[in-house]
Design a protein around this nucleic acid. Structure first.
Lengths: 185, 185
DNA sequence: TTTAATTGTAAAATATATTGAACACTTGGC
DNA sequence: GCCAAGTGTTCAATATATTTTACAATTAAA
């Protein structure tokens, strides 16, 4: 029988429903009996780790995912261009994706740098990681004491602790999509 | 008996050792028999979620912590196009940024979908958050039971555990830069 | 050495998870 | 109406996890 604090049965059931699977269909995919699934979802048994793992592989999903899952309120998913929030006051443009969401784990930006534009000397460093892809033009990126020019299709991945800055030294507009976690704004 | 992929027994044992606890002492704290602990550590049984939870409370530690535990090193920097790792085997292209880093918190992809291409019919779901910007063309995105077509410059931001999929139903190539945390690959 | 208190392990007994085969109920043809 | 295929549930049988009790090996103190 179960007493595990978190409602494993309910959680499994809701995941199964999300994927539009019947107990029997999940049973086939996971190699666990449909009756077992029924009992687990009713919290009449506490599944072995093996069984739970098999079941999750039917989605697929990992044990980490399962135990990390918390019910979250549904929030806006799609964003038109005018729904992206402009963060920059200079000539450059920093459009934030998902600004309306309360507790983002991710800071995704669509950045546009005109010729001569740049991020300023961003000496603020914070815990986390940051990465991006150049989607148009080229840009000079300084990371620590390294300096390099990245062209369309190239990318970077850095620890946010290391001071970094961007400058468009070309005569073309440059666009970047970047992501960081945890978000610093 | 166990076959759970990850070595639960070894993991439990190493955690116990880290805390300088004997099987019997952990037994007292957790309310689980020492023989059970012995069997689990030898991987001769697959503990029930209940038992594992009780054991971890003896340290204390959560199930999330337990399953998240993975040893991780570090690295950095710039990536040319040919240094991005192709993850797709179909017609679409999924280029991973920073693949050489072992401990990424971020999964940034440069995705290219030819006309008719897509992410596959199997909707994938995993714990975390995911967002992206369409940088070229347009694409149809399904999130849960919502479907929408996003054009260049538009964006999305979703909880990763909501099943989602992409399909390019236009006659032009579509490019996206997406980011997710934590990385599922 | 002996004794007592540890340690991890093992076997049989017991409790529980899982299976296999039913059940009643619904849905969509025909 | 009936029938076939689907749904989730229940119960007895079986497989497995957990406990109880015991054992042998180690460590420390007398």
């Amino acid at each position: 029988m179960t007493q595990s604090g978190i409602d494993i049965g309910e959680r499994l059931k809701s995941i199964r429903k999300m994927h539009n699977l019947s107990q029997r269909e999940l049973s086939r995919r996971a190699g666990v009996t449909n009756s077992t699934i029924s009992l687990i979802e009713q919290n009449r048994v506490s599944p072995s780790v093996d069984s739970l793992k098999k079941l999750l592989e039917g989605f697929p999903m990992t044990l980490i995912d399962f135990f990390t899952m918390d019910m979250k309120p549904k929030q806006a998913s799609f964003f038109r261009r005018d729904e992206l929030v402009e963060l920059s006051d200079s000539g450059s443009s920093l459009l934030l994706v998902g600004a309306t969401r309360k507790d983002r784990k991710l800071r995704v930006l669509h950045e546009t740098y005109p010729p001569g534009g740049g991020s300023g000397d961003d000496m603020i460093s914070h815990e986390g990681e940051e990465a991006g892809v150049i989607t148009k033009g080229s840009i000079q990126i300084s990371i620590g004491n390294e300096v390099r020019i990245l062209k369309e299709g190239e990318a970077y991945y850095i620890d946010s602790l290391i001071p970094h800055s961007f400058r468009n030294i070309s005569d073309e507009e440059c666009q970047i999509v970047s992501a960081a976690t945890p978000p610093n704004f």
